[in-house]
């Protein structure tokens, strides 16, 4: 069983986001990049399957600030191989990321045929579409998203995947492998790995690098950002200022006014 995990770095929205001069993109100089949250869950799900069924897990990521940390962390957690696709311009759109990943899967030795390709269901910057269905389309593979539970049958030819629906309802799907699945959440929270173990991985393991190969025209119709700004609609909350005691008093007054106290 060979499992690929597609990983993408995304801005950490806990940090302040600045708009670049020109007003159509984030200022990447002020952005801290972290592994997209659902990609972290995809990696965890792959490692759980490896422990349960025996598998090799390869983490495949596009070059971006901090990506080496994410890939060495994947190795320290138990991934068998890490591959970095280099050469994309900073701030590349998701459609380009998906094309570069699909090309790499087809061309980089040892990546295909994969039995299972896992990636996060959606990243916060997936403005022109989602990676998993894009890669499934490019490789002509089955796709299912919003997966939160995954098991394999004895033959390794079929996966049983649980997909989330509204209202807490879940759907159980049979998926013929190979397939591309968008993971919403792994069965367990992503494992913690001590920094010392990541440092050890940096000393003893390596990241394979492969050049991105993209069609000259970018390959598909584009969506263009004409303006980007902070999301500050008119209906903003009335802010209560002061120390915890005075804020609590104000709020108690408001709740009383609404008949809630």
């Amino acid at each position: 069983m060979r499992i690929l995990v597609l990983m993408k770095m995304a801005p950490d929205v806990v940090e302040e986001l600045e708009i670049a001069p020109g007003g159509t993109a984030l200022d990447l100089d002020y952005v801290r990049m972290i592994l997209s949250e659902s990609d972290d869950h995809a990696l965890e799900q792959a490692l759980l399957l490896k422990e349960r069924h025996g598998a090799t897990v390869t983490a495949l990521a596009l070059d971006a600030p901090e990506v080496d940390d994410a890939l060495f962390t994947a190795l320290a957690k138990g991934a068998d191989r890490a591959v970095k696709i280099a050469g994309l311009d900073a701030g590349f759109p998701t459609s380009q990321a998906a094309r570069a990943m699909s090309q790499a899967i087809a061309q980089v030795p040892g990546l295909s045929p994969a039995d299972l390709i896992l990636t996060g269901v959606q990243a916060i910057d997936d403005l022109d579409g989602l990676i998993a269905p894009m890669v499934a389309h490019a490789l002509d593979l089955p796709y299912l998203g919003i997966v939160t539970r995954l098991s394999l049958d004895a033959s390794g030819r079929t996966a049983l995947a649980t997909k989330e629906y509204p209202g807490g309802v879940r759907g159980e799907f049979e998926v013929k492998l190979p397939a591309v699945l968008g993971i919403q959440a792994a069965e367990k929270p992503p494992r913690y790995v001590p920094v010392a173990k990541v440092r050890a991985a940096m000393k003893t393991q390596k990241i394979d690098s492969a050049p991105a190969s993209l069609p000259a025209d970018g390959g598909c119709a584009a969506a263009q950002v004409v303006e980007m700004k902070r999301n500050e609609p008119a209906g903003h909350a009335e802010m209560l200022d002061g120390d915890p005691e005075s804020v609590s008093d104000k709020l108690c007054g408001i709740l009383t006014g609404h008949g809630l106290l």
């Binding site: 459609s95 269901v121 959606q122 997936d126 403005l127 022109d128 579409g129 989602l130 998993a132 269905p133 894009m134 499934a136 389309h137 796709y143 998203g145 919003i146 997909k163 989330e164 629906y165 509204p166 968008g182 598909c220 119709a221 584009a222 969506a223």
Partner: peptide
């Protein structure tokens, strides 16, 4: 929605046209 997630991305690819999310 959770029901239709992925349909838009796949349709844009199939039509060879742009998809805009969110």
């Amino acid at each position: 929605t959770n029901v239709s997630l992925g349909v838009g991305t796949l349709l844009a690819l199939r039509l060879g046209t742009a998809g805009i999310n969110f």
